[in-house]
Design a protein around this nucleic acid. Structure first.
Length: 802
RNA sequence: GCCCAAGUGGCGGAAUGGCAGACGCAAAGGACUUAAAAUCCUUCGAAGGAAACUUCGUGCCGGUUCGAGUCCGGCCUUGGGCACCA
């Protein structure tokens, strides 16, 4: 078969007949299939994109043939750092390179032959889109979900610019090798923490991979504990702890080096050491700081606070294992019952006070971090850990020195980027009125084209006078725009809401439309987004719901992660390693149907694996084999059917339909293809199935249609049916054809495989026992021994314990 | 370091706690052919055995169970994420 002309023929036909587009008249049967959109960084689609999109498209087509009205849109996540870096290196403007890349990728996407609804195409970098990203930011601001605060960034003193985590290699700037320091800057944050509780609770109702749910739960990191206040003259230090029961064992308190009290409380004699320590800490990443193998470091501030119960003087230290971003940025040190505190106290000679003993006298060497019974704690002695936590926090609460507190590891979402290639933050800073949102009628705040974005210490937009200078929309006095752009995760946190109404000039979306079309029924993308993109999207959906713009709680009902296709060397594909595989060449050589079927058959979809094209030829051969079966079927049409072959073929067909339907539903494409191959193998053994052969072949082609759409459409037509096969129904299994009178079961004696035996399917356990004991071979193996236990697994196995 | 996964023949990979290796690749043998390609058929985890068959075998160590690739505990290795790559 000449696949090139076949692919062209049917792509044109589908386009002309509107086979791929969503039918707006029937939203009641909608099925929204969405693949994570691509970032146009490289100049073309790689095999990984194909692996995401082609099998997902087969799933979408499967759903369409099951009678759903499928909506499958496509777009580009087009803002971001790589385009900007590329521009700094080559001088090619991000807008130009991005547009060019998108054009190439669009063409390639069309070569997949996927049923994307191109009429709803969107790019996040177009003003028609980012106008509404800005609108979203303003709504969040107006509802108290966006605020500014000081926060550290990676600062390269030599390039004189903020650099991304990715560009920091071993604490040094990737570009110039200078040592990176962390520097505080005022930045915008979104209050995702307001939704922490709901973001955890709603996970239970999502059809998502278990591992992703676990990762999100851990990322949000709910921990129930309490706050304890350590007074300090006019000031106080508040710590968060999950072990209030160990409060009487506190021997020191630690502040994060960035804690706001540090400068104030440090005594003159300690100042030099504290300053040096702060500088050193600003160079370490959080990952290094939290390492449990690294030796603990810290310095004494010279200051003391007061124990809230005993009134004892407690020394205040700073140490980098305490992070400013978690809890209150301060922890109490209980060396006897915390591993990190124990190491710290040992190193710096701080007191170690045991206040917990094991309940049952089992070994409880220090540091003893298990739960137990309280000792050496005055009135609290004898209480269990659980009682102690409650009692101590209640006691503190009465004194106004603490109480129960739930803490989350989740931090607010930092969205300011000191970059050019992003959506400008729609805020005007006025000396008189403060931060003022740009009026909605003035949106979008356009990203100017002619900007010098070479790094030199400032956000690129700050240097663009025509952009930065404006007037305050409230008081009319001169003011300046926010010079930063939004994190691209903001753009991608709501795109699934725009697709169903992507050309709407007046609103980001029509609530009526999206309330019908969403949530997304099946969302497909890489597991690398498990925590960030997926969590941000959930947050934005909930925030918009609470503002009244939509009426569902979760954006993605069901989620699937495709695995990663690696280079043939087992490494992640990348240009620099030279192991990237170009799908265009494969499409050219084998055709898009063969490539997509190979991707589905050769890998476990959720696992992925190293690329290897050894088997791709066999897929071509398999389709040739199917084609020959079709030609044979045509010659046998109307012929008589042999009874024995009839039963065999009917069983094979219905078994195939049943299994493939289940496998398609769960994205188990490799086993689906295997079951289809089995059916074809059976068909090749049938020489006298006549008309039934033709009928089987007709169904086979329909089962294949979602997997190899062009090929199937061609075969369907060749068999004399009217196109399009995608208007036909997916075959349904006839269970009655799967009933068998006899079944082969395994026979084990003392759990060892001994034999196999064919027994009537309908036998009960008792009947099976009787049947088995009558069998000479089995009786011989048992040798007359008494049966202790008889285990019967219907249709599978019998185990006799003697 | 922390969180989350994965590890099965020469290879890609199958296996609701119940016959390990479906399906395919590679390899070997055969049929057809003047020949090759294509196609069709057969064999194909390891060791032993003429064979029937037996023993071993799912990263490593231990446990639960009549029965473990699958569940539990502890390791090892690889991959993803760790909040400014997207």
């Amino acid at each position: 078969m000449d696949f090139k002309s076949v692919e062209k023929k049917w792509n044109e036909y589908w386009e002309k007949e509107g086979i791929n587009s969503y039918d707006k008249e029937h939203p009641e049967k909608k099925y929204y299939v969405l693949e994570m959109f691509s970032y146009p960084s490289g100049s073309n689609l790689h095999l990984g994109h194909w692996y995401n999109y082609a099998p997902s498209d087969s799933f979408a087509r499967f759903k369409k043939m099951q009678g759903y009205n499928v909506f499958q849109p496509m777009g580009f996540d087009a803002f971001g750092l790589p385009a900007e870096n590329y521009a700094i290196k080559t001088g090619i403007h991000p807008e130009d390179s991005t547009k060019k890349n998108i054009a190439t990728m669009e063409k390639q996407l069309k070569s997949i032959g996927a049923m994307f609804d191109w009429s709803s195409l969107l790019y996040t970098c177009s003003p028609e889109y980012y106008k509404w990203t800005q609108w979203l930011f303003i709504q969040l601001y107006k509802h108290g979900l966006a605020y500014q605060k000081q926060s550290p960034v990676n600062w390269c003193p030599s390039c004189n610019t903020v650099i991304a985590n990715e560009q920091v290699v071993d604490g040094k700037c990737e570009r110039c090798g200078a040592e990176i320091v962390r520097k505080n800057m005022t930045q915008w944050f979104l209050k995702i923490t307001d939704y922490a509780e709901e973001l955890i609770n709603c996970l239970d109702k999502l059809d998502w991979p278990e591992k992703t749910l676990t990762m999100q739960r851990n990322w949000i990191g709910k921990s129930e504990g309490g706050e304890v206040v350590f007074p300090m003259g006019d000031d106080k230090i508040t710590v968060f702890t999950t072990r209030a029961d160990t409060l009487m064992g506190v021997s020191y308190v630690v502040l994060a080096p960035e804690h706001s009290l540090v400068d104030k409380i440090t005594t003159p004699e300690c100042r030099k050491a504290v300053e040096e320590y702060k500088t050193a800490a600003s160079k370490a990443s959080d990952i290094d700081r939290l390492s449990t193998v690294k030796e603990k470091t810290g310095v004494f501030t010279g200051a003391y606070c007061t124990h809230p119960i005993s009134g004892e003087k407690i020394p205040v230290w700073i140490a980098d294992y305490c992070l400013a971003t978690y809890g209150t940025g301060a922890v109490m040190g209980v060396p006897a019952h915390d591993t990190r505190d124990y190491e710290f106290a040992k190193k710096f000679g701080l007191k170690i006070n045991r206040v917990i003993k094991s309940k049952d006298g089992s070994p409880d060497e220090l540091p003893y971090t298990e739960y137990g019974v309280i000792v050496n704690s005055g009135a609290f002695d004898g209480m269990t850990t659980a009682e102690g936590k409650k009692t101590i926090l209640a006691f503190l609460n009465k004194k106004g020195l603490g109480g129960v507190k739930i803490n989350y590891r989740l931090r607010d979402w930092s969205v300011s980027r000191q970059r050019y290639w992003g959506a400008p933050i729609p805020i005007i800073h006025c000396d008189h009125c403060g931060a003022v949102p740009v009026p909605e009628e003035d949106l979008p705040v356009r990203l100017p084209y002619d900007v010098n974005f070479t790094p030199d210490g400032q956000s690129p937009l700050r240097k663009c006078e025509s952009f930065i200078n404006t007037i305050c929309p409230v008081c009319g006095r001169p003011a300046h725009r926010d010079p930063d752009t939004l994190d691209t995760f903001v753009c991608s946190s709501w795109y699934y809401l725009r697709y169903p109404d992507s050309k709407n000039p007046d609103k980001p979306f029509d609530p009526k439309k999206i309330n019908k079309m969403l949530p997304v029924d099946k969302y497909i993308g890489g597991a690398e987004h498990a925590c960030m993109h997926l969590l941000y999207s959930r947050f934005i959906t909930k925030a918009l719901r609470d503002m009244g713009y939509l009426d569902f709680d979760e954006p993605f009902t069901s989620l699937v992660h495709q695995g990663l296709i690696l280079g043939s060397d087992g490494e992640k594909m990348s240009k620099s390693k030279g192991n990237a595989v170009n799908p265009d060449y494969l499409v050219e050589k084998y055709g898009s149907d063969v490539l997509r079927l190979y991707l589905m058959f050769g890998f476990s979809y959720t696992e992925g694996g190293p690329w290897n094209d050894d088997g791709i030829k066999s897929i071509s051969k398999f389709l040739d084999r199917v084609e020959r079966a079709v030609d044979v079927a045509i010659t046998r049409k109307g012929q008589k059917v042999d009874e024995k072959e009839k039963r065999e073929l009917e069983y094979a067909l219905n078994y195939c339909i049943k299994k493939v339907t289940e496998d398609m539903e769960t994205f188990s494409f490799n086993t689906a293809v295997a079951r289809i191959m089995e059916l074809v193998n059976t068909m090749y053994k049938c020489d006298n199935a006549g008309d039934l052969y033709f009928e089987t072949c007709e169904k086979l082609i329909r089962i294949l249609a979602p997997l190899v759409p062009h090929f199937a459409e061609e075969m369907h037509e060749r068999m004399g049916f009217k196109p399009s096969i995608f208007r036909e129904k997916y075959p349904v299994c006839d269970e009655s054809k799967l009933v068998k009178d006899e079944v082969e079961v395994a026979v084990q004696i003392n759990s060892k495989m001994r034999s196999k035996i064919v027994i009537p399917t309908s036998l009960s356990e008792e009947e099976a026992k009787e049947f088995l004991l009558k069998n000479e071979k089995i009786a011989e193996m048992l040798g007359g021994a008494a049966i202790k236990k008889f285990i019967f697994i219907k249709g599978r196995l019998i185990n006799i314990i003697i």
